[in-house]
């Protein structure tokens, strides 16, 4: 314990990492508190409302081939997002080996995953709003907070994905254009990767607490 304190409080830098990476970590911790507060508020309200909470497997079902398949769409979305974390990891790995082309390509694949996720979310929202008639101020399935929490939390997360898509596109374009040759050992890719993994991780929690509970 004493040695740990000594190491951390040594001079120049506490963590032996780049500034940008340190900043991204600190930002993500702060952002964790935002999502955490959203989810805790959601749980608190869900436990205290008088009306019954809608049956999520029914609301989020997709009508395929004559039967309702619960959670089908969301399973695909989750799968895509998790896979995009995989492609991002490959990109970071390639960046460490200074393989410019591979890094760029796998980052673009990640971007595609992100775009697919957001589009499917747009589809899901349209379905819920237009077909099921779910509104922030009420719905036919149960407690009215269901709709507002759903749109707020998934919307806020979707916004993060969207920002990530833009962020990653810019970085990947710069990587491919050779902008980081020489000045930097592609750490910036790793920093972008941190953000992307974070967004995916948050989704796992949203998925668990919103769709499965």
């Amino acid at each position: 314990m004493n040695d740990l304190v000594k190491d951390w409080s040594s001079d120049v830098s506490t963590f032996k990492i780049r500034w940008s990476k340190a900043m991204m970590w600190i930002f993500l911790i702060s952002d964790t508190f935002i999502f955490g507060t959203f989810l805790i508020s959601y749980m608190a309200i869900r436990l205290t409302v008088v009306d019954s909470w809608p049956d999520t497997s029914q609301v989020f079902a997709l009508h395929v081939g004559g039967t309702d398949v619960p959670l089908l769409l969301i399973a695909i979305m989750t799968f895509i997002l998790i896979s995009s974390s995989g492609t991002m990891a490959i990109a970071v790995n390639a960046a460490n080996k200074k393989d410019k082309r591979k890094t760029g390509i796998f980052m673009l694949l990640t971007v595609l995953g992100g775009i697919a996720f957001v589009s499917m979310q747009a589809f899901e929202w349209t379905k819920l709003i237009v077909d099921e008639g779910i509104r922030p101020w009420g719905n036919d399935f149960g407690a009215q907070q269901f709709g507002s929490f759903f749109f707020m939390i998934t919307g806020f997360h979707g916004l993060h994905v969207l920002i990530g898509v833009i962020y990653l596109s810019i970085v990947s374009k710069r990587v491919l254009a050779g902008r980081y040759d020489g000045i930097d050992d592609y750490q910036i890719v790793e920093v972008a990767g941190l953000y992307w993994h974070f967004v995916d991780l948050v989704w796992v929690f949203i998925f668990a607490f919103f769709y499965l509970w």
């Binding site: 951390w8 001079d11 120049v12 990492i17 500034w19 340190a22 600190i26 930002f27």
Partner: peptide, 20 residues
């Protein structure tokens, strides 16, 4: 805030340990 924290943690002068 991100700036202050990062600066304090990562860019002190040589010899400027946290406890100094």
């Amino acid at each position: 805030g991100l700036n202050y924290v990062t600066t304090v943690l990562q860019s002190r002068a040589r010899g400027m340990t946290l406890m100094r």
